[in-house]
Every structure is written in structure tokens, then in C-alpha cells.
Computed example of a mutant assay.
Amino acid sequence: MTKTLTVLLAASLILSGCGWRSWFGGRDAPPRGDLTPIEATNPLIPAERPGLFRRPEAVDTSVLIAKISKLQIDRTPTGAIILAEGIASRQGAYAAVLTPPGGTLTPEDGILRLDFRVAYPVYNTAIGPEQSRKVTDAISVTRQELAGIKQVIVTGAQNSMQSRRR
């Protein structure tokens, strides 16, 4: 009994030291030609892998908010905060975002244009009172970006509000 146990223990230590894949014909490392340069890989971002449970890319279903009710610009030590409040057309609006129509925060002729966009649930929701449909969002602007801005215009579906620099 002791001899059998000793032989099994020694065999398991020898096999574990050799590596399972190497012992049975697998490869431990890819061949030299399959290596990608270190500069081309980022270990913090996982590689795209096709799979059964992979979700498709999200489609932007956001729309302009119904009405802009407030626009406020507050100075900060690092620049400014642009705050906008709007009234959604129905309850349940979420994912509010102030976004430039072109995708970049660069002003054209000193005018920074922002769209106030929200997303709604796919199911029908009640309209409800105006207080229950208020949505607020803000965006931070640095001093460098603020230097070229003379006017800010926030656009909704029914109206837009503007604020000029004094």
C-alpha cells in the first residue's frame, strides 16, 4: 500500500512538472511567426471574440428633448459648467446628454451648439405633469475650450435657448 501510494505521488509530481499540454503534444507558446508586436496590443482591452452570447452594437435611439426650459453657465476654476434643463414629451426619459451635432466641442465662429438628447423606453409611458418630465444634464468645458466661445446655443425639438458672454 505504501509503495503504491509513493509511486502514484511521484508520478503525479513528475507529470505536473512537465505540463499537461506539452506532455500530450499541445503547444505552450505560439510559434515565432504568430507573435504580434507589443506596440500593437493593449493588455487592458480584451480581444474581440465571436461568440454565441455576444451582444450586437448598440444603436442610438435618442431624440431631441421636447422643450428646453433652462440654460445656465457657471464658472469653475478649470473652466465652466453648462447646465440645461428640459421638459420631455412623456415620462420615463433617460440617458440625457448634451452633445454637439458634429461630435466635437469646437465652436464655429464663436458659437458652441449643443443638442439636448434623451432616450425613451420602448413601451408606452404616461405623459404626466410637467414636473415629472423634467430632465437635467450638464457638460464641463475647459478654459481652453471656453476661450473661443462667445455664445452657447442648446437646441431641443420645439425651441432652443442661448447664452452670450458678457
Rank of each mutant, 00 (worst) to 15 (best):
residue 65 I to Y: 07
residue 6 T to A: 09
residue 73 I to V: 07
residue 138 A to T: 06
residue 42 N to G: 01
residue 52 L to E: 15
residue 100 P to V: 02
residue 43 P to Y: 06
residue 100 P to T: 05
residue 147 A to R: 13
residue 72 Q to K: 07
residue 53 F to P: 06
residue 48 E to D: 12
residue 127 I to E: 12
residue 3 K to S: 11
residue 98 L to Y: 11
residue 77 P to C: 02
residue 46 P to Y: 00
residue 94 Y to Q: 13
residue 134 K to Q: 15
residue 150 K to Y: 09
residue 5 L to Y: 05
residue 60 D to E: 11
residue 160 S to A: 08
residue 3 K to Y: 07
residue 78 T to N: 10
residue 163 S to A: 12
residue 98 L to E: 14
residue 80 A to T: 04
residue 153 I to W: 11
residue 63 V to P: 06
residue 118 V to I: 05
residue 10 A to L: 13
residue 60 D to G: 05
residue 4 T to K: 05
residue 122 V to W: 14
residue 118 V to T: 00
residue 46 P to Q: 05
residue 144 Q to F: 00
residue 165 R to T: 01
residue 140 S to Y: 04
residue 53 F to S: 10
residue 6 T to W: 09
residue 18 C to D: 06
residue 134 K to H: 11
residue 64 L to Q: 08
residue 130 E to D: 13
residue 73 I to T: 00
residue 110 G to H: 08
residue 129 P to F: 03
residue 83 L to F: 06
residue 39 E to Q: 12
residue 49 R to E: 11
residue 92 G to H: 09
residue 67 K to P: 07
residue 104 T to P: 15
residue 122 V to C: 07
residue 37 P to D: 12
residue 75 R to C: 00
residue 76 T to H: 03
residue 68 I to R: 09
residue 157 A to R: 15
residue 86 G to A: 09
residue 115 D to M: 01
residue 64 L to D: 10
residue 105 L to Y: 08
residue 36 T to Y: 00
residue 102 G to I: 02
residue 22 S to T: 07
residue 109 D to L: 10
residue 64 L to A: 13
residue 130 E to L: 09
residue 119 A to Y: 01
residue 149 I to E: 04
residue 36 T to W: 02
residue 93 A to D: 08
residue 27 R to V: 12
residue 62 S to C: 03
residue 23 W to S: 15
residue 79 G to H: 07
residue 86 G to Y: 04
residue 145 E to D: 10
residue 57 E to D: 15
residue 127 I to L: 07
residue 73 I to G: 02
residue 124 N to S: 10
residue 119 A to H: 00
residue 88 A to N: 09
residue 92 G to S: 05
residue 79 G to T: 05
residue 73 I to M: 03
residue 16 S to G: 15
residue 129 P to Q: 08
residue 20 W to Y: 10
residue 57 E to N: 13
residue 114 L to V: 05
residue 100 P to E: 07
residue 55 R to E: 12
residue 91 Q to M: 15
residue 132 S to P: 00
residue 91 Q to I: 13
residue 6 T to G: 00
residue 19 G to W: 00
residue 102 G to H: 00
residue 8 L to W: 11
residue 164 R to T: 08
residue 83 L to R: 14
residue 162 Q to C: 03
residue 140 S to V: 02
residue 13 L to Y: 04
residue 121 P to K: 01
residue 29 A to C: 08
residue 139 I to V: 07
residue 104 T to R: 10
residue 116 F to T: 01
residue 132 S to D: 14
residue 113 R to D: 02
residue 105 L to H: 08
residue 52 L to S: 13
residue 46 P to R: 08
residue 140 S to L: 03
residue 37 P to M: 05
residue 61 T to K: 11
residue 48 E to K: 08
residue 85 E to R: 12
residue 64 L to P: 13
residue 29 A to N: 12
residue 51 G to D: 01
residue 8 L to S: 09
residue 22 S to N: 10
residue 30 P to A: 04
residue 91 Q to N: 13
residue 33 G to R: 10
residue 73 I to K: 05
residue 41 T to N: 09
residue 89 S to Y: 14
residue 48 E to C: 09
residue 77 P to L: 01
residue 20 W to T: 12
residue 33 G to T: 04
residue 41 T to Y: 04
residue 43 P to L: 09
residue 88 A to V: 11
residue 156 G to P: 04
residue 50 P to N: 08
residue 64 L to F: 07
residue 162 Q to E: 08
residue 96 A to C: 06
